[in-house]
């Protein structure tokens, strides 16, 4: 790991941690403030703006870290668990920022950042030296597209998961300063709507690549199978929305299971061997 890369990575973790603290303070310090329309404020806007700026800075720092590594390694951050985890965290932060911008859901952002920190700490625990690509990974277009689709899909599903989690809390407690349960339900649904085509693309690109590298488009390799399981859970979630009485808590629980499947697929490299066992 080069100096710039590791410095930028550490800086990202620190900025994120500070941003989480500031974000939580913004939630606590909301006081009895009301906004122009007389609604109770969910955050102290000034302090929360600070948290958002810190998060954006963390995102920039991580982007620099990724770019430096890309230049050093000569390929995208796609060849071992360290690089995947950094990519995953980058996606979570990107989508977290977009959700913040679109929905102004401050609590959601805090959860996204905590997940990003966990991923980055995990990355930091992994061997991070630049490894050359083994022959099967030497397919730069497909490799880049395959992993980029994974980053977007997993990033949006993380936001969807955070919204589903908050939904389950909000459905019971009805905190006035948090988004309404209905809004959270809607946010999680939208996250899935955006992410699901990318999950599909991810699997299809994988099949296309497998057909070139391993001579078969599908071989029930454990990681392939796990990605199919994830896909099926999200499919089930979407069909459940067409059934009576399935919006709300049950849908939120399905989403949480779906996200567990995402994590299982992602960390699956440690559980099962198979063809995806890259470092």
């Amino acid at each position: 790991m080069s100096g710039v890369e590791s410095t930028a990575l550490n800086l990202t973790i620190i900025l994120l941690a500070v941003s989480v603290v500031v974000g939580v303070i913004a939630l606590i310090a909301r006081g009895g403030q009301t906004d122009a329309k007389g609604h109770q404020r969910s955050v102290n806007p000034t302090i929360d703006a600070g948290s958002i700026v810190l998060m954006a800075l963390a995102f920039i720092a991580l982007t620099i870290s990724v770019i430096v590594r890309w230049m050093v390694a000569g390929h995208g951050p796609f060849s071992n668990m360290y690089e995947f985890a950094v990519g995953f965290a980058w996606g979570v932060m990107l989508i977290g920022l977009i959700f913040q911008w679109k929905y102004k859901a401050s609590f959601l952002k805090v959860i996204s950042m905590i997940i990003a920190i966990a991923l980055l700490l995990f990355a930091a625990s992994q061997p991070s030296r630049v490894v050359p690509l083994v022959p099967a990974l030497q397919q730069s277009y497909l490799l880049t597209a395959h992993v980029a689709a994974a980053i977007i899909a997993y990033g949006t599903f993380t936001s969807g998961f955070a919204a589903a989690l908050l939904y389950l809390i909000q459905n019971k407690k009805h905190y006035s300063w948090m988004p309404k349960a209905e809004q959270l339900d809607d946010m999680s649904y939208r996250a899935v709507l955006v992410g699901f085509p990318f999950l599909t693309l991810l699997i299809i690109l994988g099949a296309l690549w497998a057909n070139i590298a391993w001579g078969r488009y599908w071989g029930w390799d454990p990681k392939e199978t796990a990605s199919l399981v994830t896909w099926l859970f999200y499919i089930a979630y979407m069909h459940s929305r067409l059934m009576r009485g399935w919006k709300g808590s049950r849908a939120a629980i399905l989403l949480i299971i779906g996200f567990a499947a995402v994590l299982f697929t992602f960390f699956g490299n440690f559980i099962f061997s198979g063809l995806h066992a890259y470092g």
Binding site: W220, P222, T225, A226, L228, V229, L232, F233, I235, A236, H239, S240, L242, M243, G268, I271, F272
Partner: peptide, 26 residues
């Protein structure tokens, strides 16, 4: 019925999951 579709999707997902966890004969 969409309920049937939902149940079948979950069943296939769980079967696949066991296929990823239990070693398979190939």
């Amino acid at each position: 019925s969409i309920k049937l579709a939902f149940i079948l999707i979950i069943v296939i997902a769980l079967l696949s999951l066991s296929g990823a966890l239990i070693m398979q004969y190939t």
